[in-house]
C-alpha cells in the first residue's frame, strides 16, 4: 500500500491549490534523471574497471587501464610527460583548438557567403553548383594527398583539410536554408519596397539561420574528425597527433587522456555553437506551441 502511494507521488506531481507545482514535485523528475545518468556513467566506468583493470577478460586486458589513466592524468609528475599539470598537454590542446577555430571560422564565413550567393543567383548556381556536387562525395581524408601536394606546409595542410570538411557542409546547408524560405516572404518584402540588400539582411539571413545552425553543428563535428585524421597523417603536434604517437610508443594512458580530451573539446564546441544559435534565434523560443 505504501509502495503504491510512493509510485503515485512520483508519477503525478503534486500541486498546491493555486495550480502551481510544489518545489518538491517540480525538481523530482530532474533529480531522477540526473541520478539515472550518474548511475549509467558509473556502470560504464565500473565495467571498464572490471573488464580491463581487474579481471582482464579476453582482449580487454590489452586496453588502457582506467585506474592508471586517471592516475596519470592527475599526477604532477606523469610517467610519459602528459597530464593535467604538464605544459606538454596544453601545447597539444592549444595546437588543435587553434586549428579548429581558424578553420571553422573561415569555413563558416566562406561557406555561408557562397551558399547565399548560390541560392540568390540562378546563373551562378548553374555554373558553380555542379562543381561542388562533384567534389562533395569525395571523403575529406581522400583529399589529404592532394592538399599536402599543393599546400605550403604541413600545419597549413591540416588547417586546409579541416576547413574543407566544414566548408562543404556549411555551403550546402546555407544554400538549402535560403531556398527553404517560403517565397511569400520575398513577395511581401518586394511589395513593401525592400531593396535587394534589405532582403538579404532582413529576409535571407534570418530566414536561413535555423538551417545554417544545424549545418554548423554537423560542420563542427566534421572539423574535429578531419583535424584528428589529418594530424595523424600529416601533423607535428596536436591532440590527434599525440594519440597516434602515444599509441606508437605504447603509452596507452596518454592515449586515453588525449581521447577523453578530444571528446570534451568536441562536446564543448558543439554546445557553444548550439548556444550561439539559440541566442541568435530567440524568436523561435517564443513561439506558442500548436496555435495556428
Amino acid at each position: 500500500m505504501a509502495k503504491d502511494a510512493r509510485v503515485q507521488v512520483e508519477t503525478a506531481p503534486r500541486s498546491d491549490g493555486a495550480g502551481k507545482l510544489t518545489a518538491h514535485a517540480r525538481y523530482r523528475p530532474i533529480l531522477l534523471q540526473v541520478f539515472q545518468g550518474v548511475v549509467g556513467l558509473g556502470i560504464f566506468f565500473l565495467l571498464w574497471y572490471l573488464l580491463v583493470d581487474c579481471f582482464g577478460v579476453w582482449r580487454f586486458k590489452q586496453l588502457p587501464h582506467l585506474v592508471s589513466s586517471v592516475r596519470e592524468f592527475l599526477s604532477r609528475n606523469p610517467t610519459y610527460g602528459v597530464s593535467l599539470f604538464t605544459a606538454e598537454y596544453y601545447r597539444h590542446l592549444w595546437a588543435s583548438i587553434q586549428r579548429v577555430a581558424i578553420a571553422f571560422v573561415t569555413a563558416v564565413t566562406c561557406g555561408t557567403s557562397l551558399g547565399i550567393a548560390l541560392a540568390w543567383n540562378r546563373w551562378f548556381r548553374a555554373a558553380v553548383f555542379p562543381l561542388l556536387e562533384l567534389a562533395r562525395p569525395i571523403p575529406i581524408l581522400a583529399w589529404i594527398p592532394l592538399v599536402i601536394t599543393l599546400s605550403p606546409s604541413r600545419p597549413a595542410s591540416v588547417i586546409i583539410l579541416t576547413f574543407l570538411a566544414a566548408f562543404f557542409i556549411t555551403t550546402l546547408n546555407t544554400m538549402l536554408g535560403v531556398r527553404s524560405i517560403d517565397e511569400v516572404y520575398f513577395r511581401a518584402a518586394r511589395s513593401l519596397g525592400f531593396s535587394d540588400f534589405a532582403i538579404l539582411r532582413h529576409i535571407v539571413i534570418p530566414g536561413a539561420l535555423p538551417h545554417i545552425f544545424v549545418g554548423l553543428q554537423i560542420a563542427m563535428a566534421a572539423c574535429w574528425f578531419s583535424l584528428v585524421a589529418s594530424e595523424i597523417v600529416a601533423g607535428t603536434a596536436g591532440l590527434g597527433y599525440k594519440v597516434w604517437e602515444a599509441y606508437y610508443y605504447v603509452q596507452f594512458d596518454t592515449m586515453t587522456i588525449m581521447m577523453a580530451t578530444l571528446g570534451l573539446c568536441g562536446y564543448l564546441s558543439s554546445m557553444l555553437v548550439r548556444r550561439i544559435g539559440k541566442a541568435l534565434m530567440s524568436w523561435r523560443e517564443e513561439m506558442l506551441g500548436g496555435l495556428s
Binding site: 517560403d182 511581401a188 518586394r190 511589395s191 519596397g193 525592400f194 531593396s195 534570418p206 534565434m281 524568436w283
Partner: peptide
C-alpha cells in the same frame, strides 16, 4: 511589385524573426 498594391496573403507573411512593431513599420522605412 510595390506599395501601391499590397497583398495580405492566405497563410500570412509576417516575418517571424522580427517583432510585430518592426513588421508593421518596415514598409514606410524601407
Amino acid at each position: 511589385p510595390d506599395a501601391s498594391r499590397i497583398v495580405v496573403f492566405q497563410n500570412g507573411a509576417l516575418f517571424p524573426w522580427r517583432t510585430v512593431l518592426w513588421n508593421v513599420a518596415c514598409g514606410p522605412i524601407m
